[in-house]
Write a protein that binds this DNA or RNA. Structure first.
Lengths: 221, 221
DNA sequence: TTCAGATTTTAAGGATATCTTAAGAAACTA
DNA sequence: TAGTTTCTTAAGATATCCTTAAAATCTGAA
């Protein structure tokens, strides 16, 4: 799950980034409004955390524009302001929830989970051939027998299964699963594909196909 | 589509080159300003990605000189600097957009597409008879059955389909798809046309026509 | 803290698909 | 028909991927 934090106070954003990464979210931080808006509109995120007051475009404006493009992605405001008017204004601009600073991390986490629940509630079981994946319980089965995957293995398989039937480019995979954006001359993907195939007992072109020069693709049959 | 990257950090340029090639662009890299400028002025590129600070001629200077010669070719700056002044300076020198490092590859791609849009149209799906091509998912279908093409096969078919109804000259094809500018004394095109026709199960003048002495043309029946 | 075990990443040689070249056959043009 | 261009096939060169093992990093318990 990818989270974008738009927040200009490094203290808060670092705190959140670290905490959320410990909960195995992939976190990006934007410290300025225009950058935040641009990142948000890239469509790579599953949830947005927006500060109310930030340099450049305001949080509300980001929310409004973001909502036009992505109806289903939850937005949570982090705000020091607590007047009723402004809160209403914020929710009207399309936010799903808000939380007042200062807040307990646990509480924020709970709200994030609440927001992600309904959306993923429908779509959190995926199948690929005889492989079944449950995002809620973080489990993978092969013919109803549980297979134990590590975090990265799970994240990679999730990416492939969410994009079942589409070719997943190496660059996209490494950005989404490893959060690496530069200097990518690594063979981690190969190694993890290999590990997945082994654990899932797949022959090389079975269910997870290699698309030479481009990436991989999960496909039934 | 041909892209020139002027960037002296091999980590970044390799990353970009690979990613863009996965999107079937033909990519050249210059690591030094003078070389970059010379290549840019050759007029062979559809878009330029310029680093701000490079050895030799600066990115801004390249941009300015390039803009004099080619008004319509978009230029995007890759810059680590983020002050407003310098950005404005960059845009005044004729750049169409800029992106701050570090950035998401997705975002850069989106900006490249935005810049190329007015020229090439925003279609990412093309059809040719019963052949369907999806650039987003990097897939080709014949009567809704997927056909697996190699990189070069895909790039060649893309070139033909983008230019559907127009005669594609051999020299243009080889420049755009193979990045070869001299020595047209090769028969790669023939070999790949043959491979395409085989995989797509086309008779010789069906959908992909041979224009003797000139090249090939994709055409609906 | 320190240590052991698990996970992640790096590295390198072997395996294999793709790319390119080359050459003879076939088809077209004049 | 002669000459040119394209088609087709095969094989060597190249690039990418697979696989393994070991190094680095992370994690949790003593």
């Amino acid at each position: 799950m990818r989270i974008l934090i738009v927040e200009d106070e490094p203290g808060i954003s670092n705190f959140l980034k670290q905490g959320l990464e410990e909960e195995s979210f992939a976190v990006d931080v934007a410290e300025e409004g225009n950058i935040g808006l641009r990142l948000a509109l890239s469509g790579e995120y599953d949830i947005l955390l927006l500060d109310w007051m930030i340099p450049g475009v305001s949080g509300i404006e980001i929310c409004r524009q973001f909502r036009k493009a992505f109806q289903d992605t939850p937005v949570i405001f982090l705000t020091a302001k607590d007047t009723v008017d402004e809160t209403i204004f914020g929710l009207q601009s399309g936010a799903n929830d808000y939380i007042k600073k200062p807040f307990h991390f646990e509480e924020l986490l709970e709200r994030i989970r609440v927001q992600l629940r309904p959306k993923s509630g429908e779509h959190n079981e995926f199948t690929l051939g005889n492989i079944k994946m449950d995002l809620n319980t973080h489990q993978v089965f092969r013919d109803n027998e549980e297979i134990y995957l590590t975090q990265k293995e799970f994240a990679l398989l999730e990416y492939l299964m969410v994009n079942k039937g589409k070719v997943c480019r190496r660059t996209r995979i490494i950005e989404s699963v490893w959060d690496i954006h530069f200097d990518y001359n690594t063979s981690v993907i190969d190694v993890y594909i290999n590990a997945l195939r082994k654990k899932l007992m797949l022959r090389n072109e079975e269910l997870i196909k290699t698309i030479r020069g481009v990436g991989y693709m999960a496909k039934d049959e």
